[in-house]
Design a protein around this nucleic acid. Structure first.
Lengths: 110, 110
DNA sequence: TATTTATATTGCAATATTACGATATATATG
DNA sequence: CATATATATCGTAATATTGCAATATAAATA
């Protein structure tokens, strides 16, 4: 059906899924990596950096913004984007939990 | 178009996107969390744990397996699933990179 | 205010994902 | 081998995502 039954899962699970899903596209990975590289930049720079049309990039930026992974400020008539710490902090705990588990695990069946 | 132009991105970017996408569903988050909680378990336990039909769960398990995030072994006539360290290690570096950046960043526009 | 520049939104076609009933397959055991 | 149990696959409907051309909007400046 293409419709996720999110009402059956916890808020935390849905939130993590939303964050991971937002990261789950190569164009959005590329945007995140570019923002790390240059610290912050104009939206137009990202459009030039990616092999996608401007409306497509705008859409990807919107998804990252909605997920809380980036934020943008008007700077003149352009918009300056950069990473949003809040969003990444939410995922951090999840992966730390997993890593701690993986480092200490024993007696697995596989 | 619903078709990701993966040929325009690096292998690394596509790989990370695939991993994040696999995590990007609450049912698959629930599966990962359950496997951490019980260390390893029969496929049937996961089916009982989730509010989804058996074929749907089977499909989610397949996606996690294809992404390299879980693995399964036959144990009698059932299958024992557990986390696959390899997959999670690939994401780990990405997030560590981001976290290191976020902890040291300065002079952002936003 | 008119123009330019930068970004967002709309509308739509192509493709992907989610979900599940029905069914197939694989293993264990009688 | 027949049956039971566990899991996977198939087929299909509903919905979501991706991508872009066309267009709208917002801010700066002439």
């Amino acid at each position: 059906m293409g419709i996720t039954k999110s009402e059956h899962f916890t808020d935390k699970q849905n939130e993590l899924a939303t964050l991971a899903k937002a990261i789950g596209h190569p164009a959005r990975i590329a945007i995140i990596e570019h923002l790390i590289k240059v610290n912050s930049c104009m939206c137009g720079d990202i459009v030039n950096e990616l092999p996608l049309a401007q409306p497509t990039v705008s859409q990807h930026l919107k998804e990252l913004k909605n997920a809380g992974l980036i934020k943008g400020n008007f700077e003149g008539n352009a918009i300056c984007y950069c990473l949003n710490e809040e969003g990444f902090n939410k995922i951090k705990d999840f992966f730390q939990h997993i890593n701690t588990y993986l480092e200490n695990k024993k007696n697995q069946c596989c």
